[in-house]
Amino acid sequence: MRFLFFTDTHIKGTNPQNRKDNFLETVQKKIKEVLDIAVEEKVDIILHGGDIFDRPDVSPSLVREFVVLLNKYSIPIYAVAGNHDIYGQNPITVNRTMLGLLDGMGIIKLIQPGKRIFFEDGPRKIQLTGQHYYYGIDGENKRQNYMVEKNLDASFAIHMVHGMLLEKPFFEGMSYTLIEEITDTQADITLSGHYHAGFNTKIIDGKYFINPGSLVRINNSINELLRMPKIIIIDINEHISISEKYLNCALPGEEVLDRSKVEALAFREKKLAEFVQGIYSTGQYNTINITRIIEEISRQQNIRDDVVKEALYRIGAAQEALSQNDNENYPEVN
């Protein structure tokens, strides 16, 4: 049986400030090429690692464009919800989002946490599970989001998570999960999104840990300038075989990212890192991201998780209400 995995498409109608091209047209071309590859490679199932959309309330006209594209292909698409797909980092809100609409229409099939999906392939039975993003996914109880038990009658197990799964430690203040912390999972293949840079496929004790990186490049950091978008082909027969394909339509970073700002960005990132470190040492905050404010206050003052989750839930509800009332202020189609 053959699977295709890609992640973090961040479909949106407006252009990120660091892009020189038409972002929407580029995303459309990339997704079309991914679907064409799936047909050429005779893929049975397409898997998406989350952040299909850049926000939960993208405009209906924009969603329609992608539904028209997806309907030209008959390969089933299974996905998990990313943090950009939902309100307030709360997956309970997914039914009120555009991603939830596509799930309800059967265009994209969302994998519900705790539910096991099985595919029969001759003598083999393949198990598929998934975990949506939620606040604290890489927090104190992070292992439960990545650990999987394989059914006794399952030949192979695939688990897909929209979480910060990394091969090595990240900077202070960022929640993440290291691959080495979950190597005792029973999943034969663990797929992750969220971390846009991705990492090279890791094989530990015969288990695969995969993140090809985001299909789109939104910022103009040096890493993004050099990185080329790719997808993963997973073949499961008697054994597992993994291959990757770079997108032909993806232009070099220097052609689509504003290179004139890269050196200035590197300098700003250095200064920002120094500033953030200063915040950590003094306990003061200066940010317009309300979620980051709440997370930092909770870290500094040791506020209980249930209080933080309630705050984020209320913020998500407010964001949802604002998007319904003031959608005209946030155009999603150029």
Rank of each mutant, 00 (worst) to 15 (best):
T7A: 09
R19E: 00
N22V: 02
V34F: 01
L35E: 06
I37T: 02
I46W: 01
L47I: 13
D51G: 03
S61F: 08
E65A: 04
V67N: 02
N71R: 15
I77N: 08
Y78L: 00
Y78W: 01
A81W: 11
H84A: 00
G88K: 11
N90R: 07
I92H: 03
M98A: 12
M105R: 13
I108Q: 01
K109I: 01
L110M: 13
G114T: 00
P123Y: 04
K125D: 06
T129H: 04
H132F: 13
Y133H: 15
N141W: 05
K142M: 05
Q144E: 14
Y146N: 02
K150R: 15
N151R: 08
L152Y: 09
I158L: 14
I158V: 10
M160R: 03
V161D: 03
H162G: 04
E172S: 11
L178D: 06
I179H: 01
T183R: 10
T190M: 07
A197I: 10
N211F: 00
L215G: 03
I222Q: 13
I222W: 12
L226M: 10
R227T: 08
C249T: 15
C249E: 12
A250R: 01
P252R: 12
P252C: 05
S260Q: 10
A266W: 06
A266V: 14
R268I: 11
E269Q: 15
K271S: 09
F275M: 08
I279H: 10
Y280W: 15
T291Q: 13
T291D: 13
I294L: 15
E295R: 09
N302D: 13
R304K: 15
D305Y: 11
V308P: 08
R314H: 11
A318D: 07
A318L: 15
S323H: 02
Q324M: 10
N327M: 06
E328D: 11
E332G: 14
N334Q: 07
